[in-house]
């Protein structure tokens, strides 16, 4: 009984820790992105709120919370209110299955550093990432604005194009790790990360998660130059904030996924596993930001072409080759 209570307590502690870390990471990612982008453009970036602009996320939060919460007259009110929550929630839920460290020994118990080690964790991730797009699609639809709708439609078609390649690119990982459980996958990479074993799958997955996170060069659902703000054109205040936070949480989650699937998760020399994990995730986040600073937005037809005619065949081919190689090795 007490064991179960302690387990429950530990799970709660893990939940709160993860929740807090992820949210504050998302918040400071915003700041980091603004600062890094600014430096890439020979600017300083936000440096007024707090020392070196460190309080900027708080200032943003206060600003977003105090702004008018506006619902357009012709909008579908309930869907409109629901959509931002959906977007942030699905992003947060994904983290449940991500192992962020080696199992810990506390009070004589082995605590796995994952909230819930599902044996089909990978499928859970794929499922939730497909659900995440609903937040955007419903938000765009419910706003009853042409820009929002166009953004939502773009988001949906982009999702179909890239989910497929993404799904196919993790098939070799599953084949190599012989498990759907993410912990198993990490353990399978103790020696060599899959990124080195199977670079094509890594690259396809990397491109796909950039598309998945709707960031430059695949930020067509937003594309503020043509669609004002895309699916969140009509949103203001904290509802816009939820979309915004959702995007950065997504960045962390997808970074974690990449770490888990291809970069060997927490494994690494000298440092504790959790630190390695965070370092890898942050490096990927920096890469995301770097991409944003360096690349232009793709044109819509280029994006579709690339997804269907390049990534998908490549991913399929990769599955076949990996399968063949695995068979050959035995």
């Amino acid at each position: 009984m007490t064991e179960q209570l302690i387990m429950l307590g530990l799970i709660l502690v893990k939940l709160l820790l993860v929740f807090g870390v992820i949210l504050s990471m998302a918040a400071y990612l915003v700041l980091a992105e603004r600062k890094i982008l600014a430096r890439m453009q020979l600017r300083y970036g936000p440096n007024r709120a707090g020392p070196g602009g460190m309080m900027q996320p708080m200032a943003d939060l206060i600003k977003l919370l105090t702004k008018e919460d506006f619902v357009p007259a012709q909008a579908d009110k309930w869907l409109f209110l629901l959509a931002p929550g959906l977007s942030a929630l699905t992003a947060l839920l994904t983290f449940a299955v991500i192992p962020f460290g080696p199992p810990l020994q506390i009070f004589g118990q082995t605590v796995p550093l994952v909230i819930c080690d599902l044996n089909i964790g990978l499928l859970y991730f794929l499922g939730l990432s497909s659900l995440a797009v609903y937040g955007m699609a419903l938000g765009g639809w419910a706003s009853n604005s042409k820009y929002s709708l166009l953004g939502a439609i773009r988001g949906l078609s982009q999702l179909i194009s890239y989910e497929l390649a993404m799904g196919l690119s993790v098939v070799p990982v599953v084949m190599m790790a012989r498990s759907f459980s993410l912990t198993e996958i990490v353990l399978a990479q103790q020696q060599i990360p899959f990124a080195l074993l199977n670079p094509p799958a890594f690259l396809i997955f990397l491109i796909s998660i950039v598309a998945e996170s709707k960031r430059i060069p695949f930020d067509l659902p937003e594309s503020e130059n043509e669609l004002v703000g895309g699916f969140h054109t009509e949103y203001s205040g904290m509802r816009f904030g939820l979309f915004f936070v959702g995007e950065y949480i997504n960045m962390v989650i997808l970074g974690s996924m990449l770490t888990v699937l291809f970069l060997g998760g927490w494994s690494g020399p000298w440092l504790p596993g959790v630190v390695w994990f965070i370092i890898k995730v942050l490096a990927i986040c920096f890469f995301f930001i770097w991409v944003r600073g360096s690349m232009p937005r793709l044109r819509y037809d280029q994006l579709m072409n690339f997804g269907w005619k390049v990534l998908l065949p490549l991913a399929l081919l990769n599955v076949l080759i990996t399968g063949a190689v695995l068979l050959w090795i035995g």
């Binding site: 890094i36 600014a38 430096r39 890439m40 453009q41 020979l42 600017r43 300083y44 770097w290 600073g293 360096s294």
Partner: peptide, 9 residues
């Protein structure tokens, strides 16, 4: 972009 990051704004 990487190079510019280390220049003076």
């Amino acid at each position: 972009t990487l190079r510019n990051m280390f220049r003076k704004p």
